[in-house]
């Protein structure tokens, strides 16, 4: 099968449909996605009703922050919505990249923070979005997450962070690197004060995010088959001069190595979270 051709056709279809979008908001049933794993074509409508899990093989498609909220929350009140990144270093093309991401995702930055209800349990939640500059952590992401952790500490909410990120944001240089320390310090305090932090790893969780708050959960859950690791695959291959095994840095691999508590399929995620939250005395 010529995958490239299929992709091309899909793109043409996508562009055609985008023109119509202004008139018709509902997803047309003929918009299809191809499953990366089993290459089955599935209509987006069907995917959506299945939480973006391939009905054929169970492959988990990436979902954005809003989709994640609707998957998990019965109520959600966003906080710190208005934070916007300033390109203080005038890093070349950074403004443009931010603008493109903002337009595409309708988000101000790569994370949505808020207080939500999962079932009837209130929870402070940060939902990262890999569609926004690969979910990279700059000063705004670091600040929003830190504020949320501090809010959870103050109000005695449990904390859930749904992680997806390529790591620290290159364009902000050292300021984005130190966000790793800032968020980790906030989580340390929260933990010392008895707070419950559930970290949910989704595809992909790598670099500076995996090497900070993502790996600091009291309980670390992961979606099936998601990529979890510090260094990028290409960098490792260049260092060791050999090809890495297929399952390397996958959630299943990290579970086997002892770095993840549980792999939870998306369908069971909400139910699992409710159970854990309730066992820790979570209430509305």
């Amino acid at each position: 099968m010529d995958l490239f051709k299929i992709r091309q056709e899909k793109l043409t279809l996508f562009h055609k449909n985008r023109k119509k979008e202004t008139i018709k908001k509902e997803i047309p049933s003929h918009v299809i996605e191809t499953c990366e794993s089993c290459h089955t074509n599935v209509s987006v409508k069907e995917l959506k009703s299945n939480h973006f899990v391939c009905p054929e093989c169970g492959y988990h498609f990436k979902i954005d922050a809003h989709e994640r909220i609707s998957l998990l929350c019965d109520e959600f009140k966003e906080v710190d919505k208005k934070f916007i990144t300033k390109n203080i270093e005038n890093f070349p093309e950074y403004d443009k990249k931010l603008e493109i991401s903002q337009k595409r995702t309708k988000l101000n930055e790569a994370v949505i923070c808020g207080i939500g209800k999962i079932g009837d349990v209130s929870c402070a939640m940060a939902m990262m979005d890999s569609g926004f500059m690969m979910g990279s952590m700059g000063s705004v992401v670091g600040e929003k997450i830190t504020r949320l952790v501090e809010l959870a500490d103050k109000k005695k909410y449990p904390l859930l962070i749904s992680c997806t990120s390529g790591g620290a944001r290159m364009q902000e240089g050292i300021l984005s690197l130190v966000q790793m320390a800032k968020t980790s310090a906030a989580i340390k305090r929260f933990s010392e004060n008895g707070g419950l932090y559930i970290s949910l790893l989704t595809h992909p969780t790598t670099g500076g995010v995996s090497a900070s708050f993502a790996m600091l959960g009291d309980i670390i859950l992961a979606e099936p088959n998601c990529l979890v690791g510090f260094a990028g695959k290409r960098v490792i291959e260049n260092t060791i001069k050999e090809k890495l095994p297929e399952n390397f840095q996958k959630a299943e691999f990290m579970l086997e190595k002892g770095f993840i508590d549980r792999i939870v399929p998306r369908k069971e995620l909400k139910e699992t979270l409710i159970k854990i939250l309730k066992m820790h005395g979570g209430h509305s």
């Binding site: 310090a185 340390k188 305090r189 995996s210 900070s212 993502a214 260094a231 960098v235």
Partner: peptide, 26 residues
């Protein structure tokens, strides 16, 4: 930088760095 090797990943490079940030912070 931290070593980008296969063994380093298997033994939790990300977790080890995260724990340093976490522990040194207080």
């Amino acid at each position: 930088g931290a070593y980008p090797g296969m063994g380093a990943e298997e033994r939790g490079q990300a977790q080890a760095i995260a724990e340093c940030l976490y522990t040194f912070s207080d």
